[in-house]
């Protein structure tokens, strides 16, 4: 199979407007992934499925990932004049990265038996603008998995035929797989409470519960 760089340049040839970005992967698995902007995601995915050299007809896995807002610090060495003498000074730049939700698609080809090509779709933020295009019309296998991500992460998939909660019940409000999810305070008796369970138990029963 082609490398992801080659695929990326071919996509850029086919879709001049698409904004693509390769996410390198430092782990031993060597599986880099491709971020596609939401506007061209559907067309790019269709192209990946139908391209005769790739034929990624099998969408194996769809996972949601929650990235909280984070600050990344990068240290760069800059030459500066300090007291009239040129010196190398470390400059720390802080860049705030807004939080977003991500849907990761692992695509394989059953007919050509290669893969994976990993596609990442990102929402603009974690609150209101939480839409990405649904790829269920292309791969039916994404249907339940996208529903699960909608349920547990709260990504809205535009164009999904049946976007309902799947694992949690219908009246449930929050999205439990988000990193900042707070468990509801429904305490049950626990015979060996410790750590946060002990705190919870003490809050509910006064000081009766001791270590």
């Amino acid at each position: 199979m082609e490398t992801l760089d080659q695929i990326k340049s071919r996509i850029e040839g086919a879709f001049p407007g698409a904004a693509l970005q390769i996410i390198p992967n430092e782990s031993a698995a060597q599986q880099p992934s491709l971020v596609v902007d939401n506007a061209s995601a559907f067309a790019v995915a269709r192209w990946l499925r139908d391209d005769p050299a790739l034929r990624l007809d099998y969408c194996s896995n769809v996972s949601g990932v929650d990235w909280l807002p984070a600050e990344t610090t990068t240290k760069t060495k800059v030459k500066k004049l300090v007291n009239g003498v040129e010196q190398e000074v470390e400059e720390v730049t802080k860049t705030a990265r807004p939080g977003y939700l991500e849907a990761v698609y692992h695509l394989y080809s059953m007919s050509l038996k290669h893969g994976p090509v990993i596609l990442r779709l990102r929402t603009l933020d974690r609150a209101e603008q939480n839409q990405v295009p649904s790829l269920t019309p292309l791969w039916r296998g994404a249907e339940f998995q996208e529903r699960e991500i909608y349920d547990l992460f709260g990504i809205r998939f535009d164009g999904h035929p049946d976007l309902r909660r799947i694992l949690m019940w219908d009246g449930f409000v929050d999205h439990p797989m988000r990193k900042d999810y707070v468990e509801p305070d429904d305490y049950d008796y626990e015979p060996t409470p410790h750590d946060e369970v002990l705190e919870k138990a003490q809050k509910h029963q006064g000081t009766e519960v001791s270590a």
Binding site: T192, P193, H194, D195, V197, A211
Partner: peptide
Amino acid sequence: EKECPPKCIYIV
């Protein structure tokens, strides 16, 4: 106590 998956061990 730390590694126990269901956290059923309690030590003082």
